[in-house]
Design a protein around this nucleic acid. Structure first.
Length: 480
RNA sequence: GGCGCGGUAGCCAAGUGGUAAGGCCGAGCUCUGCAAAAGCUCUAUGCGUCGGUUCGAUUCCGACCCGCGCCUCCA
């Protein structure tokens, strides 16, 4: 049988088995993108890890229900939309479409619900009112509303930052003496639930009991997770940077308003480094999917690379690792092809195996499956795939047994979201007539054992970007 | 200063109280006119440093060194 899925929980700092508390559906919420530009591979690492989680839940029979929001109103979206002279809606829709296209290319399953902040203003206002009623929030003279951190005793339990107000004030002064002065807050620790309308907001404001304005960033996740998943649910995911303050504030808002526990399990992925350095705009290493595709890498290769390390460890993303991923995928395909030939199964039939009806017998790929159950240890899983092939080769299994083994493998690959045999990704290139003519001439020279001429023509082809792959009875041409 | 993560072969990266998965690269061999491609084989007495516990530690404990992340709106 499948081992139970275990994951690290940030709240308790321990590895716990995950399960749907209602026994029917595993309900989880992921903090989604802020749509003001193309998502970079660091963003996608988070969404890919969450996707592997969802797929693993699915294969485990935990029936996942996945909600991921879109932040379509905040300082950056408003500012950038204004700069481009577009309405907020038009502007964000463009980047939402781009995000969806990239996600699809990376084989990220769409969430079951994908709520936008601007579609849930009233729910957010309701939540703020509840908090005010309970004296956990107050409105300031300018019509903004703040959460009163000092009134919420458990504040800080997720990130375990105590007394951080004084600490941060003291030590982050290098950064910026916050815009603390700019706002009418009782304490720098307090965070905005509702921001009053400012001239630079342009037309982007909504009516509220406190006057015109817009919701604060943390509010949407509390309001929308409650709207789609209820007051409490099974798991909440996001990048490690969101642990504080975003998730801490979500907890304060949600638990403060309902008096009930919020998410039962907190799932945070580590960040990405690029070529050993922090990924940052100033370093020019914030790759987008498009950047990498321009370098000739396929989305499958990019996906493989981004999920290849343990999600709780920083992953050092390098161009060389993309090449390694390419070779590794080819090797899996090769090993798989050998087995498919043995049992007379086509590549297409393999890709169509129904993975939702797996028996739970992982055969030689048990180690690979155990890796996923073991805190989504993808490194163990990919290692287990190769090791599985090796041990498979050692046995002389009959056709049915091999078929079962390959079904198990199909399940593993589904969980990883790695689609094989997508040769179509690199479009078959038309061979120009001039090139095939040279190649043919070179083949004739070779047959005539005129090595000098043959090698000269081969060099010529290579200069024009084509490589000759000789077979016994002919040759293939490959674009370099 | 607070909270947290890590240091394993040329690179990436798992892992275990009993002697180091896997991938990439590289090397050798086979094949080949020569290459390429393909196939086969090989590649850490070693797991940041120094102590300690132990029959035995890379794995546990302690100290130290180095790198990284978060600390008010960055996945």
């Amino acid at each position: 049988m499948a081992s139970p899925l275990k994951l690290y929980d940030t709240m308790t700092r321990s590895v716990l088995p995950v399960k749907a508390v209602d026994g029917k559906q595993f309900r989880f919420y992921c903090c989604g993108p802020t749509v003001y530009g193309p998502a970079h591979i660091g963003n996608f690492r988070a969404f890919l890890v969450q996707d592997v989680l969802r797929r693993t839940l699915q294969i485990s029979g935990l029936n996942p229900y996945h909600v991921r929001n879109i932040t379509d109103v905040d300082d950056k979206t408003i500012r950038t939309a204004q700069e481009e002279g577009k309405s907020l809606k038009e502007f964000t829709q463009y980047w939402i479409d781009k995000f969806h296209a990239d996600s699809e290319a990376l084989n990220i399953l769409p969430p079951h619900q994908e709520p936008k902040a601007t579609d849930h203003i009233s729910q957010q206002i309701d939540l703020v009112q509840k908090l005010i009623k309970q004296d956990l929030a107050y409105s300031s003279s300018d019509g903004s509303v703040y959460f009163k951190v000092s009134a919420y005793e458990p504040y800080g339990k997720l990130s375990r930052l105590k007394d951080r107000e004084t600490e941060t004030q003291f030590l982050t002064s290098a950064g910026e003496h916050n815009d603390a002065d700019e706002y009418d807050r009782e304490s720098v620790a307090d965070f905005a639930l509702w921001k009053s309308r400012k001239p630079e907001d342009g037309e982007n404001f909504w009516a509220s009991p406190w006057g015109e304005g817009r919701p604060g960033w943390h509010l949407e996740c509390s309001a929308m997770s409650q709207a789609y998943l209820g007051e409490n649910f099974d798991l909440h995911a996001g990048g490690i940077d969101l642990c504080f303050p975003h998730h801490e504030n979500e907890i304060a808002q949600s638990e403060g308003a309902t008096g009930k526990p919020f998410a039962r399990h907190w799932f945070h992925n580590a960040h990405l480094q690029v070529e050993g350095e922090k990924m940052a705009k100033s370093l020019g290493n914030m790759y987008t999917l498009e950047d990498l595709e321009k370098k000739g890498f396929s989305p499958t290769e990019i996906r493989y690379t981004l999920i290849s390390g343990h999600y709780r460890q920083p992953l050092n993303f390098t161009i060389a690792s993309l090449g390694a991923a390419r070779s590794a995928i080819k090797k899996i395909e090769k090993l798989l092809r050998g087995n498919l030939e043995k049992i007379g199964m086509t590549e297409k039939a393999f890709t169509q195996i129904n993975v939702t009806h797996l028996s739970g017998n992982w055969g030689h790929f048990t180690r690979a499956w155990d890796g996923l159950c073991n805190e989504l240890n993808v490194s163990q899983t990919t290692g287990g795939i190769f090791a599985g092939f090796v041990s498979l080769e050692k046995e002389n299994l009959d056709s049915d047994s091999i078929k079962n083994e390959l079904s198990a493998l199909a399940g593993i690959l589904y969980a990883l979201g790695i689609q094989l045999f997508k040769a179509g990704e690199s479009e078959p290139v038309e061979i120009p007539e001039s090139i095939s003519a040279i190649a043919e001439e070179r083949w004739q020279a070779k047959q005539a054992r005129d090595w000098e001429k043959a090698d000269g023509l081969r060099r010529e082809l290579s200069e024009q970007g084509w490589q000759i792959l000789d077979r016994k009875d002919g040759f293939d041409l490959k674009s370099l």
